[in-house]
Simulated scan of single mutants.
Amino acid sequence: MLQLITDAYFYPDGTSQSLSVSIKVASKTQFCVFDAEQNLLAQTCMQDVIVKDRLGSVPREVILPNVGLLTIPTSAEVDQWLSQSATKSKIAKLESNKTLILASSILVPAVLYVFFKFGIPSAAITFAEYVPQSMVEIASRHTLVALDKSVLNASELSSEEQQKYQNQWAQIQHQLDFALPKVNIHFRQSKTMGANAFALPNGTIVITDELVALLEHNTELLTPILLHEIGHVSHKHSMRLIAETMATSLAIDYFFGDLGALIEAFAGISNTIMQNQFSQKLEWEADNFALAQLPALGLKPDSFALAMEKLATTLPEESNLEKFVQSHPLMRERIENARNKAL
Rank of each mutant, 00 (worst) to 15 (best):
Ala286Pro: 05
His217Lys: 08
Ala307Arg: 07
Val206Glu: 01
Phe289Gln: 01
Phe115Gln: 02
Ser22His: 11
Leu222Arg: 13
Ser20Tyr: 11
Ala42Pro: 02
Glu283Gly: 06
Pro65Thr: 08
Ala290Val: 00
His235Trp: 10
Ala110Tyr: 11
Thr219Trp: 15
Ala265Asp: 14
Ile101Val: 13
Ile269Lys: 10
Lys281Ser: 15
Ile185Gln: 06
Asn288Pro: 01
Trp81Ala: 03
Ser122Asp: 04
Lys191His: 08
Ala296Ile: 02
Gln189Lys: 15
Leu147Glu: 10
Met1Ser: 08
Leu222Thr: 09
Tyr130Met: 07
Glu37Asn: 11
Val114Pro: 01
Leu40Asn: 07
Ala86Leu: 06
Asp209Leu: 05
Gln280Trp: 12
Val233Arg: 11
Ala124Gly: 05
Thr192Cys: 01
Pro329Glu: 05
Ala296Leu: 06
Leu107Trp: 13
Ala154Leu: 11
Gln30Trp: 03
Ala170Thr: 08
His228Tyr: 12
Lys90Asn: 14
Ile207Val: 15
Gln38Met: 05
Glu95Thr: 07
Ser134Cys: 01
Ala290Trp: 04
Ser18Gln: 12
Tyr9Val: 03
Thr143Arg: 10
Asn271Lys: 12
Leu94Asp: 03
Glu161Asn: 07
Lys117Leu: 05
Leu299Phe: 14
Leu64Ser: 00
Lys310Met: 02
Asp13Ala: 12
Val325Asn: 06
Ile23Tyr: 10
Asn153Cys: 03
Lys98Asn: 02
Thr44Tyr: 14
Lys93Glu: 08
Met331Trp: 06
Leu282Met: 12
Phe304Gln: 01
Leu343Pro: 03
Ile101Trp: 15
Ser158Lys: 09
Glu220Phe: 07
Val114Leu: 15
Leu40Asp: 06
Leu291Asp: 08
Leu321Glu: 13
Asn320Lys: 10
Ser122Met: 11
Val25Phe: 15
Ser303His: 15
Val49Arg: 08
Trp81Arg: 13
Asp253Leu: 13
Leu291Pro: 05
Gln168Met: 11
Gln162Arg: 11
Phe256Arg: 02
Ser279Cys: 10
His186Ala: 02
Gln168Lys: 13
Pro132Thr: 01
Gly260Val: 00
Lys24Ile: 02
Thr248Arg: 05
Thr6Tyr: 10
Ala146Thr: 06
His217Asp: 03
Glu283Pro: 06
